[in-house]
Simulated assay, not measured.
Amino acid sequence: MVEQHTHDMNSVFHALGDATRRQMLRDLSHGERTVSDLAKPYEMSLAAASKHIKVLESAGLIRREIRGRTHLCRLDPGPLATAHEWLNFYQRFWTGRLDTLERLLRQEDKQTSTGTDKQERNDT
């Protein structure tokens, strides 16, 4: 089970590691598109677009349906939700760490300003 989950996550992050594939996913978030539609903004061949689409498919990020000679692709958000959940752990971790740092810096600033006030009073 853990190995399968790890493989799935590796596939998702590999697919998301390419800017063209990320843009294709963004385009698909607006509705289904043909392979030609997905290839058009990049002026790439259908074969090149198909390679990107296969990577997205193997990661489970999109589904392809064949209607006659037309290949329609649509977003499958499930694996993105899993990746988001995984990343969310680190977001909470770093938010907590940064909140602690902020609190410590504010305490230090307060102590420094209080020390400066005492020094100014002693000088007068």
Rank of each mutant, 00 (worst) to 15 (best):
P41Q: 13
T116K: 02
E85Q: 06
A83I: 00
L56N: 02
R74F: 05
Y90Q: 14
G68C: 05
S45Y: 04
S113F: 09
K118N: 01
L38T: 00
L75P: 01
D76R: 02
G115R: 04
D8H: 08
A48D: 11
S11A: 15
K54H: 11
A49R: 00
Q91I: 12
N88C: 05
D117Q: 13
N122I: 13
L28F: 02
Q107N: 10
M1R: 12
M44T: 15
Q111Y: 01
T34L: 03
K110S: 03
R69N: 12
M9A: 05
Q107D: 15
A81R: 08
L104Y: 04
R103T: 02
L28S: 02
Q23D: 08
P79Y: 10
W94A: 12
L38G: 00
A59I: 03
Y90W: 07
T70E: 06
T116C: 03
V2H: 12
A47P: 15
D8A: 10
T112P: 03
K110V: 01
D99S: 14
L101T: 07
L46G: 11
K40L: 15
T6S: 09
T124C: 10
L38I: 03
G115K: 04
P77H: 04
D99N: 13
R69C: 10
Q23A: 03
P41L: 09
H14L: 10
S29L: 08
Y90F: 05
M9D: 02
H7V: 09
Q107W: 07
Q119Y: 08
L98W: 06
Q119G: 02
D27R: 12
D18P: 02
R97T: 14
D27E: 09
R26Q: 15
I53K: 02
G78T: 01
N88G: 14
E65Y: 11
T95Y: 03
T114F: 04
E85V: 09
N10V: 06
E43K: 14
D76V: 07
E43Y: 11
S36R: 10
P79I: 03
L80W: 00
F13K: 03
F93Y: 08
R26Y: 14
D76E: 11
H14F: 11
L25T: 07
T100D: 10
T112S: 06
E57D: 08
S113P: 05
A49W: 01
T114K: 11
H71L: 15
S36E: 10
H52P: 04
R67A: 15
W94S: 14
K54C: 14
R21F: 05
S58P: 06
Q4C: 03
G17H: 05
A19T: 09
L72M: 15
R97V: 15
M9R: 01
E43G: 14
L16Y: 12
A47M: 14
D109N: 13
W86N: 15
K118R: 15
D99E: 14
S45F: 09
A39V: 02
L46K: 08
R63M: 06
S58R: 07
R92I: 07
E120I: 01
Y90A: 12
L38M: 04
A15R: 00
G31D: 07
G78W: 03
H7C: 10
R106Y: 05
E120V: 01
L46C: 08
S50A: 11
N122L: 13
L87Q: 07
D27F: 07
A19Q: 10
S29N: 07
P41W: 15
T34M: 02
A48C: 07
P41F: 13
Y42M: 14
D8K: 06
D123S: 14
